[in-house]
Nucleic acid binder design. Structure first.
Lengths: 200, 200
DNA sequence: TCTCCTATGTTGACAGTGGCAACTTGTGGG
DNA sequence: CCCACAAGTTGCCACTGTCAACATAGGAGA
């Protein structure tokens, strides 16, 4: 419109708006390959405005990934808050929450684990592995302490559990684990296999 | 140079040259986010020449991914060619070959499983899951037939095995499975866990 | 051998991108 | 009230993917 925008010259909260707009665009067809200019357009500012809040596009992507890790950790912690009856129940709850998060947010999950975000740009991304891994390590340690799990090296077991959850999430997002190919409840089957290896 | 290139007007084998050049560029820093114009420059042709062999950039990426799946399947088949003493040995050989392939070719492996290649563009990508999955299914079937593996639903077990191998590969490529975090031989630990679940 | 059609190159253009510099408009602190 | 800084805008550059029109072979058929 020829008439000036009624937004004042200073947006007031552009950093948050850019992040939220980018999060919305993650849900769209191009996933994290949206353009920063389109983010700026939707935020109602010029194409260069986001550069006052993020050094470059990669920094915005890193921020999105970091928020994703925050949310993942929060959901896993939430799943373990309720008193659980056994190490097995803890393990299953954490794993199912993990996979549920990834499959509910496929583009975000891909971004979180793409090589394209600059891990040096955001300390939270360094903590990414630490967070998920720490939860799993804790579950296995408690399981071994209670006698429910075999006393194998904890970190190797935790790596296996994380690899299984991560791999399952990625393959599901890719559409590689269709029911007609892998049966109706492949996650349950996968977790049972892993548990049979873990349990005494 | 002002002097004309000594390459004749018709390249003669440009499609193969574009593929090979792109494969080389996959090994470089930008991974599969190389530009088609740079591929054309390195191939010594104009920026539009590749469009006579590939409808668009995505089609070239799909071709690279398909060749990656060919190579992966070939390497797994090669690992299983030698007579193996047990179902366990088969399982370990296939899994280790899988992870070895992915960690030796990180950018190619990421491309193979990125959501960014158009699966409709190449029938081999549809077969991607079929190939790896068929190998794993075969190993588990043979293991169950010989009595080495428990008689659980095969496809669920195969899905678990694939998820573990895939997840382990992706996390390794991401640098998330450093030895100081997960111990010296995390893949061996992971495979042992899964095998303890599989074996009778 | 010639002609014609197709394959496969090239050139030029378009619309868009990421990101930078210089400038403009507030805002807040002293 | 003034000034320094934050946070906007405008304009530009070099590059991209892709398309259309044109140029140059190459091969098949008469």
């Amino acid at each position: 419109m020829q008439e000036k925008s009624n937004r004042p010259y200073h947006h007031g909260d552009l950093r948050r708006t850019v992040i939220e707009t980018a999060q919305q665009m993650l849900q769209e067809e191009k996933g994290w390959q949206f353009t920063l200019r389109e983010v700026a357009r939707r935020a109602g500012v010029s194409h260069a405005a986001p550069y006052k809040h993020f050094p470059d596009k990669s920094a915005l992507l890193a921020e999105l990934a970091a928020l994703g890790f925050d949310q993942l950790r929060s959901e896993i912690a939430g799943a373990l808050e309720r008193p659980l009856r056994s190490a097995r129940a803890e393990f299953v709850a954490a794993a199912k929450t993990y996979v549920q998060f990834g499959t509910a947010n496929p583009s975000l999950y891909r971004l979180m684990f793409s090589g394209d975000v600059d891990k040096a740009a955001h300390v939270k991304l360094d903590e990414a592995g630490a967070g998920a891994f720490a939860e799993l390590t804790g579950i296995i340690e408690r399981g071994q302490a209670s006698g429910a799990f075999k006393k194998h090296p904890v970190r190797g077991q935790a790596a296996a559990a994380w690899a299984l959850a991560h791999g399952f999430t990625m393959l599901t997002i890719d559409g590689q684990l269709m029911a007609e190919k892998v049966g109706a409840k492949p996650l349950d089957a996968a977790l049972m296999s892993m548990l049979e290896g873990l349990e005494t």
